[in-house]
Design a binder for these strands. Structure first.
Lengths: 189, 189
DNA sequence: GAGCCTAGGTATACGATGTAGACATGTCAA
DNA sequence: TTGACATGTCTACATCGTATACCTAGGCTC
């Protein structure tokens, strides 16, 4: 709050003439950005439209570095948040999915619906110098052979991950899974 | 820190004779619990073993209410954390998965590997009284028809969700998806 | 037995943070 | 002209993690 006040060239307490408190401010900020999520290109095919909407969420949230922690710290859903969730569900209902499946799919997609995911805990970054890196890997390999194996042999080893690709990979895994369950007439019993 | 000191019947600063700072303490707490994750029943089938290990993580983390936020606040991986990740990868490598697929699978599973998931933003809980609830739903339905449709027609409507079932649903969606990609000789190109 | 190190605890204080409460001021309607 | 209201300011407080300086009892060395 004090930093924001500084940036506005104003006393911290001046902010409180406009908002109740910090939490309400964050609510409003999240709401504002979430409201940006347009309905994207809908073609009437539920999986495509769901994917498009989630990618629209991704592009909206990624424009604001503070959005991830802001969303994650909210404890109640704002109108815009509810609208986004409602739109996701509507897409699935329109596609003929059962209420049961929509329910479970929403839980499964909850880690993706805002367009970002909490990363795996970061492993130490490898040194840039090749000789140095080889030595670091060797030491590391003693205790964590599989991590090193993956880090050294996966395509793009050494480079940083393509986060868009990783996001899409997991998203499609979930969407394809839901589609398959739907086709098989899945029910939670 | 001050509350912990109180509980120990000691001055806050006494704690600092034993640890560097609050962050290191949380690191150690997480490390301690993560180390509890035993290798569970391994039967030599990668999907089963992966599932078992993640469920072992779930049972370890769920014993400690503070674990979720503690893990989520860590910025560097501890030895026990690395060991858990290494074990997950080893299981997949042993199952014959490619380095490429292991890499992507780990990203996709990163939201499940500790045995918990960040919940969907909570929607307002429905009133207990049936008449009151009906009225609340009616008002809500005007703006969020699909949410209400799901909430009222999904099996177990009105009851609270079975979080274990929801966790398993999403986990299996991911595992089955990875298995299918593996069977089809998937590669990221 | 004298001296001293050290592990573990205390007392005090500081800076950052969100925010309560009382007070000032400029604008505009009545 | 008056007074209400919107918008600021100033001061102060509780809470938090933690730096610094100091104390003390037990056990070691000589």
């Amino acid at each position: 709050m004090r930093r924001l006040a500084d940036e506005l060239g104003v006393t911290p307490m001046a902010i409180y003439k406009h908002i109740d408190n910090r939490e309400r401010l964050l609510d409003a900020m999240v709401d504002h950005v979430v409201a940006e999520i347009a309905s994207a290109s809908t073609v009437g095919e539920w999986k495509h439209d769901l994917r498009a909407r989630i990618l629209a969420a991704r592009s909206a949230t990624r424009r604001h570095p503070w959005m991830q922690s802001a969303i994650e710290s909210r404890t109640a859903a704002s109108p815009a948040v509810l609208a986004h969730m409602d739109a996701l569900m509507a897409t699935m209902f329109d596609g003929g999915l059962s209420s049961d499946l929509v329910h479970h799919a929403m839980h499964a997609l909850s880690t993706r619906m805002w367009g970002f995911t909490r990363d795996v805990l970061p492993t130490p970054t490898a040194p840039a110098d090749p000789a140095e890196r080889a030595r670091a890997y060797a030491a590391f390999a003693e205790h964590y052979p599989s991590i090193v194996r993956m880090a050294t042999t996966a395509p793009g080893a050494g480079e940083s991950c393509d986060t868009d690709a990783e996001f899409l990979f997991a998203l499609d895994l979930l969407l394809d899974g839901v589609e398959r369950l739907h086709a098989n007439g899945w029910s939670s019993r």
